[in-house]
Design a protein around this nucleic acid. Sequence first.
DNA 1: GTTGAGCGTT
Length: 256
Amino acid sequence: MSHFGRAGPPDIRDTYSLLVLNITFRTTADDLFPLFDKYGKVVDVFIPRDRRTGDSRGFAFVRYKYADEAQKAVEKLDGRVVDGREIMVQFAKYGPDAERIHKGRILEPAEKLKGRSRSRSPRPSSRHRDDYRDRDRRRNRSRSRDRSDYDRPRARDRDRYRSRSRSRSPDYRRERRRSRYDDDEKVRSRSPIRSASPARRSVSPRKSASPHKSPSRSRSPVAPVEKERSATPKSVSPTGRADSRSPSPQRSDADE
DNA sequence: GTTGAGCGTT
């Protein structure tokens, strides 16, 4: 992906990871490589992307071969305006497997099982798990449109992590900005709860009552290709691409 | 087309 032709982490034997924050969503690894490579030997540049949309998450990881060069890049590139945005370069705190990192260098590698009996110090890895779960819920913060897809009951979880003071407590702020777009509000308005007059304002202009929204998508996993264009004009995607999210809006049981 | 605190992958 964002690598130079290799898949997965090349080699983190003696590399120092730098965390680049506040970069634009358009900035790619190729744009950051020449910038960071000028201050040292850059082993790899990785930009976490969204698995659904594929867009950048707004930060990147730059791994240097030497610590001094990494430190130099932090001092030089930290605060540098890239693509009109001021980036923030700092040493990574956690590794790909949530290992503790000191100055970008991994302190606790994933070789736990090697010196298993040798490890006489039962390290409480409970904190590592917290950080892992923490970023999992936070990456849904952006792209509110996708957040609804991963909506899950985590009320009690949030209460637990509420006490966690990472750097600031934007809990209240995050929830306030949660409803940036009306899309979220409208999506939640489609709850099956018919509070008051469900069809009073629009008393079904059609001749028969037709629930325009049928959540029963499990009707037909495969979209039957019917040539009845006039029957279901919304059945065909204007993009010419059969979207998998559109199972079959047409009701074959009602429409014969 | 949108967003902006933060810690990572074939």
